[in-house]
Design a binder for these strands. Sequence first.
DNA 1: TAAATCTGGTTTTAAGATGCAACCCTATTC
DNA 2: GAATAGGGTTGCATCTTAAAACCAGATTTA
Lengths: 154, 154
Amino acid sequence: MARKRFDDSSCSVARALNEVGDWWSLLIVLHAMYGTRRFVDFQQELGIAKNILCDRLGRLVDNGVLRKVDVGEHGSRFEYRLTDKGRDLFPVVIALRQWGDKWNPAPEQEALDLRDRATGRPVQTVLVRDADGQPLSIRDVFMPEDSLPEAKKG
Amino acid sequence: MARKRFDDSSCSVARALNEVGDWWSLLIVLHAMYGTRRFVDFQQELGIAKNILCDRLGRLVDNGVLRKVDVGEHGSRFEYRLTDKGRDLFPVVIALRQWGDKWNPAPEQEALDLRDRATGRPVQTVLVRDADGQPLSIRDVFMPEDSLPEAKKG
DNA sequence: TAAATCTGGTTTTAAGATGCAACCCTATTC
DNA sequence: GAATAGGGTTGCATCTTAAAACCAGATTTA
C-alpha cells in the first residue's frame, strides 16, 4: 500500500505535512515566494514532470495555499499565486532554508542572503522566542500535559 | 522512475527536504523533540510500519539528525537521540505546527501550547524578523540577484 | 529448562506514486 | 497554413510504500 494520509490526525504537524509535506509542494511554494507564477516557469525551474506539477498545483489550490488566476492575455494562460495561507509559510520556508545553509552548505554557494527591503540589512535567524523575545531552545520549553501527542495520533 | 533526489542541488531547501522532507522523517523528529527515543515507542506513537521506521531512523542517523545510542541495559536496546543538527530543526517544526494550528485547526483540539519553562508564558509565533526584531512578511524582503535560484537547480 | 515476551530488524507482496515521453487542444505568431 | 507556446492528460515502466509475516538475540515467566 502506498503513502499514508493524515487528514484526520489530531496532530497539526501531520495535517500540515499532508498539504505541503511531499517532495515537491514546499519547493513549489518556495519558488512562488521567489516570484514564479506560471506553469512552464515552475516546470523549468524545478525540473519537475508536467503531470506531477499539474497534480501538485491542483492540490495546493485545493488546499488554499495557491490560487489559480486566469490572465487571459494570450490564449489560455494562468498564474498560480500565493494566498495568505501560502504566504504564511514564509517562516517555515526560511527556517528550513537557514537550517539547510547551516548544516548542509553547498560548497560553492553562499548562504541565503535575505534582506529587509526597507533597510537593506539581513534578516535574523528564525528562532522560537519567549514572550520577551529571547531565543528558546527545545530544552527551555514544556507543554502542558493535555497538549502532548497521543499514541496513534502522530 | 521514482522520486527524484536533490543531493547535488544548489538549493539548500531542496537539500534540506532531501533529509527531512518526506512524510515520516519530520514527524519522527517532532516526536524525538517530545521526548520519544526508542524504536517501539516511535512505532506505536506514529503508527508507522516497522520497515519504514527502520529506514527513516537509519537515514536520519546517516544524515546526522539523530544518533543511535546503545543503551545495553536489557539485551539489545538502542535509543535514537537528537543531535545538535536535529535540535536545530526546532524552529522549523514549531513554525510548521503554528501554521497548521492557524490554517487547519482540528475541530476538537486546542492549538499548540508551548511554554517557556522559566516563566510559564507561551512562546511567540515564529516569524522572520529584521535586524531590530520587527516582523517581516515576504513582501518586506528581497534577495540580492546572485542568491536567486536558477533554472534546473530547484 | 522450556515457553513466552520484548526489541530491533529483514523479507515478501500489493497497492500507489513517480518520471518520462507522447499526445491533445487552443491560441498566437510567422 | 505551418510552426510554436501554454497548459494539460494518458500510458507505461519503475520505484516506494504499508502491512504483515518472519527472524534472532536476550530476558523474564512458568
